[in-house]
Simulated scan of single mutants.
Amino acid sequence: MLSEKEEKIAAQEGEVNELMEPIWVKNLRKLLMLSAECRLPLETIDFVHAELGLPSDYKESLIPKFLDFCMGLNWEFWIRRLRLLQSAREERYMKERTLDTSGNVNGHNSKDENFSGPFAFHLKFPAGFRPNMSYLQELEKWQKMEFPSPYLNAKRFEVSDPKARKRVVGVLHELLSLTKEKRLTSAQLDVSHSELRLPARLCCA
C-alpha cells in the first residue's frame, strides 16, 4: 500500500513526464547532431540515459512518439533534416558565444586567468596551481583561437588541426550540458567516442 504522499507523487509523475518530453526530444536531437553521422546506437543512449534525465522506459514511452514525428520520411530524408537543424544550431551556437563576451572581447580577467571572447572557455585552475608566464601566454593564444562549431560534421576536419582539437572541447562542453549534473564518467565517454569523433587518448585518460 502506498501512503497518501506517495500516491500523490505517483499521480504527478505522468504529468511531469509529459511536460519533460519536449526537452528530452530536443536534447536527443542535439546529441544526434553532435555525432558525425547524426545517428547513435541505442545501446549508447542506454548507457547514459539516466544522466540525460530520460525515464527508464524511454524506449517504450518516448522513442515511439519520436518516430511518429518522422512518419512517412525515409532515413536519408531524416538525416538531411538533421543536417539542416545541425546548421541552424551551429549558427546559434556561434552567435551565443559571440554575445557571451561580458562586453570585453578577447579581454583578460586577471582574477582567475580567464579570457572573454567568442572562442574562450571558462577555466578554473586547481587549488595551488601557479602557471608561469610562458604557460599563460600559450593559454591566451589557445583561448583566442577560433574553432569550428561542435555541430559541424567532424569528418570535415583533420584531427591534427589545433582548431579541430579545440573543437573537441566544444563537443564535450555541449555534451555535458545535456546531462543533469554536467558530468559523465570516462567509461560513458568511451562508449560514444567514435560517433562523436573524440580523441582516443581523451577516453583512455
Rank of each mutant, 00 (worst) to 15 (best):
M1S: 12
L2A: 11
E6W: 02
I9N: 05
A11P: 03
Q12D: 05
Q12L: 09
E13I: 09
G14F: 02
G14I: 03
E15W: 00
V16W: 11
V16F: 11
N17K: 08
M20H: 01
P22A: 12
W24P: 02
K26V: 00
R29T: 03
K30W: 04
L31F: 04
M33Y: 08
M33P: 11
L34R: 00
S35P: 06
S35N: 09
C38I: 00
C38D: 00
R39Q: 10
R39N: 05
L40C: 09
L40A: 08
E43S: 15
I45M: 05
I45F: 10
I45P: 06
D46L: 01
D46G: 12
F47V: 00
A50V: 04
L52R: 02
L52V: 00
G53W: 06
G53H: 04
G53D: 08
L54N: 01
D57F: 09
Y58C: 09
K59N: 11
S61R: 10
P64D: 08
P64Q: 11
K65D: 09
K65I: 08
K65G: 08
F66H: 09
L67E: 09
C70F: 08
M71Y: 01
M71L: 05
G72T: 06
W75I: 15
F77M: 13
W78D: 06
R80V: 01
R81K: 10
L82G: 08
L82V: 02
L82C: 12
L82W: 06
L84K: 10
E90N: 10
E90W: 01
Y93C: 05
M94V: 14
D100S: 13
T101S: 11
N106G: 06
K111C: 09
K111W: 00
N114A: 07
F115N: 05
S116A: 03
G117E: 06
A120I: 09
F121T: 02
K124R: 06
P126V: 07
A127G: 14
G128N: 06
F129N: 13
R130P: 14
P131K: 07
P131S: 12
N132M: 11
M133S: 14
Y135I: 15
E138F: 13
L139Q: 15
L139H: 12
E140W: 00
Q143M: 13
E146N: 11
E146R: 11
P148D: 04
S149D: 05
P150M: 04
Y151S: 02
Y151R: 02
A154I: 02
K155E: 05
S160N: 13
K163E: 09
K163D: 07
V168Q: 15
V169G: 08
H173L: 11
E174P: 10
L175W: 09
S177H: 06
S177Q: 12
S177N: 12
T179V: 03
E181R: 08
R183A: 15
S186I: 13
L189I: 04
V191M: 15
S192C: 11
H193E: 14
E195H: 10
E195W: 11
E195V: 05
L196H: 02
R197A: 15
R201P: 11
L202T: 00
L202A: 06
C203S: 14
A205E: 14
A205R: 08
A205T: 07
